[in-house]
Write a protein that binds this DNA or RNA. Structure first.
Lengths: 197, 197
DNA sequence: GTCTATAAAAGGATAGAC
DNA sequence: GTCTATCCTTTTATAGAC
């Protein structure tokens, strides 16, 4: 199909779909709402993407990719492991400041259909053993705290993800709904999380 | 209404609704599926609880209560703060081993409708300042690590919640889908999380 | 490629018999 | 209290004109 012949480009639709899907999830999102946001008609959605499911798949794969930051780049730099770790935390904190709905979106939809994972990992080209082996060697060398490397990764991600995914809960319970203060706290996490390791 | 006149008790329906709602969430859950699981007819669901929304509210309030463990009990015991903290971690680990869908259920539904929080906190009688003040005094006394008490609580809960909420993701990525090993790891967290503090 | 109008399906809710 | 049958609304998906 010729791209020049498309007036409302796929990109416009995908932007709208991304916003609605990540905020509401597959089950709650409505095709009508996506069409409205894209400034087009419902029928046109089905013209570009045959079904809600197919549109969702596109959006979700892109979101899943975001969630697996390219930490491999950092690993090859001539810096020590603590700097790599600091960089990884920074990537997540920045990502979630920009896209706060991402964590709960990924978690919920994977829980809804875990079988989806296999295809995603293949398509996105994820290779966890790279980072695990790197951390293992650095731990053995005494550069990082003594800990199972998988547990190290899991702890870092836990500390990055939950404060964002559980934001309404946490900001209400612990910050008395002071959204400014909580937002600042989340940004500062770039440094405070690192103190643990 | 007379309880003796009920053959299929509310409890049976609530058990079924709890299982379906916590696993699939409000939007994905189907009244038909809840009825099937309870071994009854769809119409009977509406007889006991007028609507899906009302049935969901009952289930969700009960789930929300579970999520706010009664740590106040522990605080009044003549034990040091580190023991209280260890007890709090144990409560969460045990709860999530028993009800693994709880964390994502709470997080997702609160994100879907944050306004719900106010009513819930009133009904359940939550008072966060109790535990915050207790931890603050213990930190000042040097019993616990130097840290904003709210951040301390948030970190503990993050480390307890994410490994469960993100289980399919984490067990596939980092444990190569070895469910037995991952389950054992989750149980062991009762001790490993505590090492951080 | 984009629209209006409409079909088709799914799912929550009610009527009425027993 | 429990069931079968049915209604009604919502929402996805398609037909067909321009």
């Amino acid at each position: 199909m010729d791209n020049a012949s498309k007036n409302v480009s796929e990109a416009v639709i995908l932007d709208a779909a991304r916003a609605i899907f990540t905020e509401k999830g597959m089950a709650t999102a409505r095709m009508q709402e996506i069409a409205d946001r894209a400034g087009i008609n419902k029928a046109l959605l089905h013209y570009y993407f045959r079904s809600k499911e197919k549109l969702f798949d596109r959006v979700f794969q892109e979101a899943f990719q975001q969630f697996w930051p390219k930490v491999e780049m950092h690993m090859n730099q001539p810096v020590d492991a603590r700097t790599v770790l600091r960089g990884m935390i920074g990537i997540y904190v920045d990502l979630f400041v920009e896209r706060p709905y991402l964590p709960d979106f990924i978690i919920s939809e994977i829980n809804r259909d875990p079988a989806r994972l296999e295809g995603l990992m293949r398509d996105v080209g994820v290779n966890p053993s790279l980072i695990i082996n790197y951390l293992a060697s650095q731990i053995k060398a005494g550069v990082l705290v003594e800990m199972d490397p998988r547990e190290l990764i899991l702890n870092v991600i836990s500390l990055c993800v939950f404060p964002v995914a559980g934001r309404p809960l946490v900001s209400r319970f612990l910050w008395q709904n002071d959204q400014e203060a909580y937002q600042q706290f989340l940004i500062n996490r770039k440094y405070t999380i690192f103190f643990f390791f």
